[in-house]
Amino acid sequence: MAYSDKVVDHFNNPRNMGSFKKDEDGVGTGMVGAPECGDVMKLQIKVQNDTIVDAKFKTFGCGSAIASSSLATEWLKGKTIEEAQKIKNTDIVQELNLPPVKIHCSVLAEDAIKAALADYQKKADTK
């Protein structure tokens, strides 16, 4: 199966790879996995004044999973929490031209975004 140019580009030049310290102020961490294929994805956001100022990811999985999380971090930067909630896996599918067998990679990325946002919220609430 051939990957789309955009997937290959994100795979070869992943944006925002890396991580923040979990307990750092304003950092939300989402950690998700796909039991069917064993992919693991960690996505982190750094929030200031309700806006995501930075995002990072680490993904262990296929090219589409890496591309999906790389794209997700690009999109997250500069968005407000509310805007970030609205990112859908179908947007990722469309942007990366993912074939049906790789749609679960985009679902994983959406789950990771949601988990990171929830973690940030939880941390903010308990402060």
Binding site: M31, V32, G33, V40, K42, K58, F60
Partner: peptide
């Protein structure tokens, strides 16, 4: 999700 296991896997990948 087994967060500990994920951390371990990602670290190992590094």
């Amino acid at each position: 999700p087994p967060a500990d296991l994920f951390e371990e896997i990602l670290e190992l990948q590094d």
